[in-house]
C-alpha cells in the first residue's frame, strides 16, 4: 500500500516481528561482557521498570490502606503494607458521583468502541482493494486530515452548532475515527491471503461475506489491538468533556471526575476528597485514600485488559506497520 510504506515500509522488512535469530546464549564471536557493563545495564533497566511499577504499586496500596497507615506514612503514599481497609471503596461506591461516572465511562467506552471499530473495519476493507472506484480519492481525503485540521475552535463551533453541547454523542463522534488506525487495518486486510479471498469469491461470496467470513477471522490480532486502542482512548477521554460537558457533574465520565476532584481538588459532593475542608461526618476513610481509590478505578480496567492483549499488539502493530 502506498501510504504506510513510506512511513514504515522498506526499512524494516526482514523478520521484524520476531527477534533477530540468535543462538540461545551469546554468539561465539561476541566478547564476554564486562562486569561494569552488565551492572550498569541492569541498573538502568531496573530503574526504568521501577519508574513505572513503583507509582502504580504505591497508589494501589494507598487506596486500600487504613487511615492509620496513611497517617503513619505522613499523609502521602504508603509504600509498606500496614493495615488494610477497603473503606475508601465503600465510600465512593455509596456516593452517587463516582458510581455514576463509572457507569457513564463504561457506556461511553462500549458504545464508542463499537462505533469506531464498525466504521474503521468497514472503511479499511472498503479501501483495501486496489483500483476500486474512488479509493484513491477517499484515501487522499483521509490522509489530508492527518496533516491539516481546522483547529480547535472551528471544531468546537461545528459541534455546538449541531447542538452537541451537553450531549453524549459529542464525547464520542467528533473523535471516533483514527485515520492512522484505519491505514494499519487496511494494510492487514490487503495482506490477507489472496487465495482465500479468491476462493470465497468463486464460491459466490460477496464483499460483505468475504469481510465477515474470510478477512475478519484471519485478522483477529489487529482487531483486538485496534479495539484496545480505541477503548483506551474513550476510557481516558477527558478533553471532549471539558469542551462539551464541563458543568453537569451528573453526566461526567470517570476521567473527568478524576480531573475535577483529585487533580483540581474540588470537593466531591458528600465526600471529602480534598482533605482540606472540614471532614464530612460518618466518613470512614481518609480523604487521601478516597482520592487514590478514584485513581485506581481509572487504572484498573487498563491493567486488567492489558496482559491479555499485550502480546498481540507488539506483534500486531509491527507486522501491520511493516507489511504496510
Amino acid at each position: 500500500m502506498s501510504t504506510l510504506e513510506p512511513l514504515l515500509g522498506r526499512r524494516a522488512k526482514a523478520g521484524a516481528g520476531t527477534p533477530r535469530k540468535r543462538a540461545k546464549g551469546r554468539a561465539v564471536w561476541e566478547e564476554q561482557p564486562t562486569f561494569v557493563g552488565q551492572f550498569g545495564k541492569g541498573a538502568v533497566l531496573t530503574v526504568v521498570v521501577l519508574a513505572v511499577v513503583l507509582p502504580l504499586y504505591a497508589i494501589i496500596l494507598t487506596s486500600v490502606s487504613s487511615e492509620g497507615a496513611i497517617n503513619r506514612a505522613g499523609g502521602s503514599l504508603v509504600l509498606v503494607p500496614d493495615g488494610l481497609s477497603f473503606a475508601a471503596y465503600r465510600e465512593i461506591f455509596s456516593n452517587g458521583v463516582v458510581t455514576r461516572a463509572v457507569v457513564v465511562s463504561f457506556a461511553i467506552t462500549a458504545v464508542g468502541t463499537f462505533v469506531s471499530m464498525a466504521l474503521s473495519i468497514l472503511c479499511a476493507y472498503g479501501l483495501s482493494r486496489a483500483r476500486s472506484v474512488g479509493h484513491r480519492f477517499f484515501l487522499a481525503a483521509m490522509i489530508f486530515t492527518m496533516f491539516f485540521s481546522g483547529g480547535l475552535i472551528p471544531s468546537f463551533l461545528v459541534v455546538t452548532q449541531l447542538h452537541g453541547y451537553d450531549q453524549y454523542w459529542a464525547l464520542i463522534l467528533p473523535s471516533c475515527i483514527s485515520v492512522f488506525n484505519i491505514l494499519i487495518m487496511r494494510g492487514f486486510y490487503q495482506a490477507t491471503a489472496r487465495d482465500l479471498v479468491d476462493a470465497a469469491r468463486i464460491d459466490g461470496a460477496g464483499d460483505w461475506r468475504i469481510l465477515w467470513s474470510v478477512v475478519l477471522p484471519t485478522t483477529k490480532a489487529v482487531t483486538a489491538v485496534m479495539t484496545l486502542f480505541y477503548a483506551v482512548g474513550y476510557w481516558g477521554s477527558w478533553f471532549n468533556t471539558l469542551l462539551y460537558m464541563p458543568f453537569d457533574n451528573n453526566k461526567w465520565p470517570l476521567s473527568y471526575v478524576l480531573y475535577e476532584y483529585v487533580n483540581v481538588g474540588a470537593k466531591m459532593p458528600g465526600l471529602d476528597t480534598a482533605g482540606s475542608g472540614a471532614a464530612v461526618q460518618h466518613q470512614a476513610a481518609s480523604p487521601f485514600a478516597i482520592s487514590m481509590a478514584v485513581v485506581v478505578l481509572t487504572l484498573l480496567p487498563i491493567l486488567i485488559v492489558y496482559p491479555f492483549l499485550q502480546k498481540h499488539f507488539t506483534k500486531g502493530m509491527l507486522t501491520g506497520a511493516i507489511k504496510g
Binding site: G134, F148, S149, G150
Partner: peptide, 26 residues
C-alpha cells in the same frame, strides 16, 4: 465496487462533518 463504496461512506461522512466542516469553519 458498490458494496465497497457503501462500506467507506459512513467514515467519510464522519470525516466530512467533524474534520472538513471545521476546515471551512476557519
Amino acid at each position: 465496487d458498490k458494496s465497497l463504496l457503501v462500506m467507506v461512506i459512513p467514515t467519510m461522512l464522519v470525516l466530512l462533518v467533524f474534520n472538513y466542516l471545521p476546515m471551512f469553519g476557519t
